[in-house]
Amino acid sequence: MKKVGLYFGTFNPIHVGHLIIANHMAEFSDLDEVWLIITPQSPFKKKKSLLDNHHRYQMVFEATADYPKLKPSKIEFDLPQPNYTVNTLVYLEDEYKTGYQFSLIMGEDNLKSFHKWKNYEVILENYHLYVYPRISDKEIDHQFKDHPKIHKVAAPIIEISSTFIRKQHALGMNIKPMLPDSVWKYMDEMNFYR
């Protein structure tokens, strides 16, 4: 049975913080692989700064090329919109009927709002959550404290955000050290976020 952690995000763009977290989960937990699932651009909510799906997938593909335990995934691109994690999990279970055990990877900040997710009880009943620390002053809901399916992983706290990278890049600041070289090259060649 292959244990796969699902790390969802827009990855707009993917940065070294994402890679550090994904690699930490693949190397220092009981997960065998981490799939980085690129959340599609919603047709109902166009964000000017959100790159097209295929560009974000390409950057994740480039960023993970040297990491055999990290896999880019565009499975949500063809699923009905808007995307709900519970629906993606149902799709994955149907697509990969045997040999896979899926878990979710999320930041502590997402755990604090997890009770607002669609069918969060179903997710928690059927899947494990791997939670990495984030700096936040919100309190974790009591039902998620010491839950047997919620595993806190002592991963590095990375305070880099894609929003910060986009804003600073648009201002002409040097954000290259925050990105994998291949992502920087692709982003620069395509003239993104200027």
Rank of each mutant, 00 (worst) to 15 (best):
L19W: 10
L129F: 10
A63I: 06
S182L: 07
T98Q: 14
D78Y: 13
S29C: 12
I21G: 01
L89A: 13
Q58V: 08
T85D: 03
Q101K: 14
K152A: 05
N126P: 09
H115T: 15
T98K: 15
S42L: 11
L111S: 02
H142S: 08
P148C: 06
L51I: 02
D78A: 10
V153M: 02
Y67C: 14
D30E: 13
F28M: 13
I20M: 09
G5L: 03
G17S: 07
S42E: 03
N191K: 11
M59R: 12
L92A: 08
Y84C: 08
L70E: 00
G5C: 04
H142W: 05
E189F: 05
Y96N: 11
L92E: 05
P80E: 03
D109K: 08
I158S: 04
P43C: 06
S103G: 09
Y193N: 03
P80L: 02
F28G: 00
E76S: 07
H128W: 08
D146L: 12
E189S: 00
M173P: 02
H147F: 11
V86K: 02
M59S: 10
S113Q: 14
I140Y: 04
K167I: 01
N110Y: 08
T64V: 15
K69M: 14
F102M: 10
D30T: 12
D146F: 10
Y130R: 09
A22D: 03
D52N: 12
I21D: 01
K2D: 01
N87F: 05
H18Y: 12
F8R: 03
T10N: 04
I160D: 01
V86F: 04
T10Y: 01
Q143R: 14
Y130E: 04
Q143S: 08
A22G: 06
F114T: 09
W117Q: 01
W117K: 03
K185H: 09
F164I: 15
G5I: 01
M106H: 04
D188H: 11
L50A: 09
V131K: 08
V122L: 13
K138G: 00
D30R: 11
P177M: 12
E139K: 13
I105L: 13
M25R: 09
K118D: 00
T163L: 11
K152P: 04
N110K: 09
H115E: 11
H142M: 07
P133V: 04
L79T: 06
I158A: 01
K118C: 08
Q143K: 14
H15L: 10
G17E: 06
M178A: 11
K185F: 08
N83L: 15
M1R: 00
H169R: 15
K152Q: 09
R166M: 02
N126V: 09
L104A: 04
I37D: 00
Q168W: 10
G9C: 02
G9D: 02
S113V: 15
N191G: 00
W184K: 03
L36C: 09
E121K: 15
K48C: 07
F8D: 00
W35E: 05
N119E: 08
M187H: 00
L171M: 14
S161K: 05
E62G: 02
I20H: 06
I105V: 14
H15M: 07
H169E: 07
H151N: 14
